[in-house]
Design a binder for these strands. Sequence first.
DNA 1: TAGGAAGTTTACGTTAACGTAAAGGTTGCT
DNA 2: AGCAACCTTTACGTTAACGTAAACTTCCTA
Lengths: 132, 132
Amino acid sequence: MTSKISPTKYSISDLSKEFDITTRSIRFYEDQGLVSPARKGQTRIYNQRDKVRLKLILRGKRLGFSLAETGRLFELYDVDKTSAKQLNSIMELIHNKKRDLTQQLEDINAVLIELNDLEDNCQETLRTLETK
Amino acid sequence: MTSKISPTKYSISDLSKEFDITTRSIRFYEDQGLVSPARKGQTRIYNQRDKVRLKLILRGKRLGFSLAETGRLFELYDVDKTSAKQLNSIMELIHNKKRDLTQQLEDINAVLIELNDLEDNCQETLRTLETK
DNA sequence: TAGGAAGTTTACGTTAACGTAAAGGTTGCT
DNA sequence: AGCAACCTTTACGTTAACGTAAACTTCCTA
């Protein structure tokens, strides 16, 4: 049996509400080539794929990716018929991204440790203040 | 015996070379109140503390912190004699930062998994290209 | 049929984090 | 003395990622 799935059709304001971003941002992402919704007349109509892309864009932003970088990552997924040359440059790109992210993991862990220390200090100070 | 430590005195170009940033950036960070080097006449003289701060600024940037956010974190360390009220707002700030960073950890792990998948695909495609 | 809600394009404005250039002071050779 | 290598301040320019406003269309409904 074929699986019927969710509505798969969204207006721009549907998505702006769901992701808590402005319609301006969504149109801007389109301008930058990160999404390309269908049109019904003038009106944009977004499908599941567009929605997923928005989610990925936002995740990218949380990680400090520029929109251009996120766009590059999107391209990676659309690669089916590529030359070996391109494949190698793609793998280099992937390698660099992995390197950056691994560095970020270290950074985050370090900062989390520091924040926990700070938190402990604060709580202790609070306790001594209350005892008095 | 007292431990003699490293030079602890740096010129602006020393640090710009060491951290691979421009002197313009370093002066800008000063402008934003993130470092405050001593002066000998007009000339800036940086010490160990300044150097550490630069390192932290750069780590913050890797994590997508704005200079203002990093500045807030610096302030947290200078807190000794603070009121309970301030302590609570500080702890809230810490809490939010921890929340963000934890989210980032999840994001990074997700992206790393995807990148590994992509890498595998690329390598497999490369192998099939070579076999032919 | 008048108006409101949601959509559109076009275009100028804004903020952060510097880049870049101009104009000049200080030190150290040679 | 001259100039090269640093340092300084001042100030305008630049890019990314939108914000904001104007002017317009389309659809719904009271």
